[in-house]
Design a protein around this nucleic acid. Sequence first.
DNA 1: TAGATTGTTAATCGATTAACAATC
DNA 2: TAGATTGTTAATCGATTAACAATC
Lengths: 217, 217
Amino acid sequence: MDKHDRISPAVIRRLPKYYRYLGELTKMGINKTSSRELSEMTGFSASQIRQDLNNFGGFGQQGFGYDVENLRNEIAKILGLDNKYKIIIVGAGNIGQAIANYTGFYEADYEVVALFDKNPKLIGMSIRNAMIMDSDDLEDFLEKEKIDIAVICTPKSVSQQVAEQLVRCGIHAIWNFAPKDLKMPENVHVENVHLNESLFSLTYYYNRMNKEKSKNE
Amino acid sequence: MDKHDRISPAVIRRLPKYYRYLGELTKMGINKTSSRELSEMTGFSASQIRQDLNNFGGFGQQGFGYDVENLRNEIAKILGLDNKYKIIIVGAGNIGQAIANYTGFYEADYEVVALFDKNPKLIGMSIRNAMIMDSDDLEDFLEKEKIDIAVICTPKSVSQQVAEQLVRCGIHAIWNFAPKDLKMPENVHVENVHLNESLFSLTYYYNRMNKEKSKNE
DNA sequence: TAGATTGTTAATCGATTAACAATC
DNA sequence: TAGATTGTTAATCGATTAACAATC
């Protein structure tokens, strides 16, 4: 299993896509697939798919292909989707609430156990069995409950400070929606969802297309 | 300007980050910077930063560095942040509403002009000056209004169909929040925000850390 | 068996980093 | 001028693709 140590992030980012497409095949009642077929679905090359999977072991059968359900289970195991995760959301504004309602959490055993905000109007409200609590109670809460993942949906002005508080309370995995890079110790993993970078990138390509179009006229 | 044609996506994804940090420098009243300083802030190497910027022209002064405000303006121009963009959001559920409230739109001249949903309970509601309209009126609306960017926040079951409708009505830029890859013609640019892939990736690294920790004990 | 497709090594490609001449 | 830092070319690194032997 030592191989795992040096898997490139690019590979890890492709695994969820394989997982998703294998799920679609399962739903369609298809139980056998090949790197060629997965290539057509995902847009990645067949060669790359075989390389990716072989980072973790040989899941296929030469001359035959891959068993859909087996491969899907193996990827689930690699990603850790066979475990349970308790989640809290810090910041219960628009994005925080939307994340609390996020149906993607049902794809594995993720449970949002609480939200935190300092707005008194929000405190006490519930979203899908999770209550919005006072931010002042965050540290006490984390002392009692073993939380796996914290989601940061606060304004960027306080995101660094919130992150440091979370880490002090033992959090090692942060899903960060605040448009700011968090400076964190090495043993904390931060996954950023920086909407502004995504939107700006889209804007660039939109303009580039328009320029090309007007050039061809 | 033909250079623009072949800029790698990796470069484009870094530009918004440069832009953001230059904004922070401006706010701090700092008007001169260097690739070394930007490197410390962004975590990218100084060499890479110089390479990236020189894809678009020489914005610096040898022996001196970069003028913060000038460089920021140049990047804004490259990304197209000096233009106006009209946006619609299709799907006014949790995520759609959160996006309508997204304050990042104020960082440039983005305007959400309408949302669309087929839920009668939502139709007629307003979010920050944008009304939620009946999805049945989407095509009529697009005929009358010139829209630049469409955001897809529908369930994944209808996202492909919605995207095709948008493209038929002349949309070329899609910000896709549905957890599904859209099959689109070449002249349509899709920027995906696939939360499930981000969450699964976070889950992988969280587990890897835990495995390493328990190994060292 | 013949055909198919994996697993894996080698070749290619592209992106990042290093180095340094140009020059402010 | 001397010092500093860019712009740019060359070297390195890593990721993707191609090729093919292994084998079901």
